[in-house]
């Protein structure tokens, strides 16, 4: 148990394996908790369903951006080669769409990839260089071999004693209160 100055914003509990973390996530989901997260050194198969999370919308973002990049690339080539600077080169038509495929494709991939990274960071609320969970010293082990659950006290179901006993009943250890 840690005492940090400031208002308590949630609790962090440790679990000993991917299986027990998965089980804890299912229990919290079934008990109606929404504002909790399961931290692990690597993604755990089946955790999205255990936590009751929906699929990430990233695919739509990337798809739209890739389409935007590709159509922008084609537009650029059409406008520069056929409208603004029409120039006969080896007798090819000004709008030689076959020759414009590589750049169109390249710009589609480029914008799609940039969107995948920026979108992933934005949806994960990153970069966020500080977060209250980092007040816990044990929590740093999440990037090594630790499995943690964090529950925010802003969750509607959160109750300082009830939540704690639920966590304990599913195998949570080293439960800490986190302050901001």
């Amino acid at each position: 148990m840690v005492t940090t100055s400031g208002n308590p914003v949630g609790i962090v509990a440790e679990f000993d394996s991917p299986a027990s973390l998965l089980h804890a996530a299912e229990s919290l989901r079934d008990a109606g908790y929404r504002r909790f997260d399961c931290h692990s050194p690597f993604p755990i198969h089946g955790m999205d369903r255990a936590m009751g999370l929906r699929r990430s919308p990233l695919g739509w973002i990337v798809g739209m951006c890739a389409l935007f990049g590709a159509s922008g690339g084609l537009l650029l080539q059409w406008w520069t080669s056929a409208v603004d600077y029409p120039f006969v080169i080896s007798g090819k038509p000004f709008f030689s769409y076959q020759a414009f495929v590589p750049v169109t494709f390249g710009l589609g991939v480029l914008l799609g990839a940039v969107a995948a990274v920026i979108g992933m960071l934005a949806l994960s609320r990153l970069p966020m260089l500080h977060h209250p969970v980092f007040h816990s010293d044990r929590f740093a082990r999440f990037s090594d071999e630790g499995f943690f659950v964090s529950i925010e006290s802003s969750d509607k179901r959160f109750d300082s004693t009830e939540t704690r006993s639920l966590i304990e009943s599913v195998g949570g250890r080293n439960i800490e209160t986190i302050a901001d």
């Binding site: 996530a25 997260d37 399961c38 931290h39 692990s40 050194p41 993604p43 755990i44 955790m47 999205d48 936590m51 999370l53 699929r55 990430s56 990233l58 695919g59 995948a116 990274v117 979108g119 992933m120 960071l121 949806l123 994960s124 990153l126 970069p127 966020m128 260089l129 500080h130 977060h131 969970v133 999440f142 990037s143 964090s150």
Partner: peptide, 17 residues
């Protein structure tokens, strides 16, 4: 590391990305 917390709410976007 941009403040990475290894939460599954981050992993799910990360894995799809």
């Amino acid at each position: 590391s941009l403040g990475w917390r290894g939460g599954n709410r981050q992993w799910k976007h990360y894995e799809l990305a």
